[in-house]
Amino acid sequence: MAKQLNVFVDNRIGRIKSITEVLFKAGINIRAMAVQDRGDFGLVKLIVNHPDKAVIALQENNFACKEKDVLAVVIKDKPGGLFELLKVFPEDNVNILDAYGFAAETIKGSLFFVEVKDVKQVSDFLETKGFKVLTDAEVLEI
C-alpha cells in the first residue's frame, strides 16, 4: 500500500503552483500527481517521498489535506497492461474512486495507483491473482 495525500483546492488560478511551492520549500519530492475536479473545487492527489512531512508543511500553509492509503499495483508497460488488471477487479463490490499511473523504468513496467474504499481487502485479492502491490517503502524507492 502507498500513502497518497489528498489536498483540497479552490478552483482558482495558482493553487497547484502554491502546493508545489510549499512542497519545494519543505524539500519534498513529488513522485506522482493527479487532479480530481468538481467545478468550484477539487482534490490534488500526490505521491511524495515524505508524506508525513508534506502533510505538516501543507497544513502549516492552511491547506486541508489528508493522508490516504491507496493501492500501488505493478502492471505491464505494454498494450493491455491496464486491462489485465482491471478485468480481474471484483467489479461487483469494488468501486474505483480514482486511479492514475505512470511508466517506471526501475520496475520494468508501470505503476498504477488505485483509490478504493477497502484497500486491504482489494490488495490481498490482487496478490492472489498474481499482481504485485507495492508497499509504501517500495513506492518511494522507485
Binding site: Q36, R38, F63, A64, C65, K66
Partner: peptide
C-alpha cells in the same frame, strides 16, 4: 471554508 482537522480527503464526503 472547510475545517482542516476534519477534512476526510474524499470528494464524496465533500459533496
Amino acid at each position: 471554508e472547510i475545517y482542516s482537522k476534519l477534512f476526510a480527503g474524499d470528494l464524496s464526503e465533500l459533496e
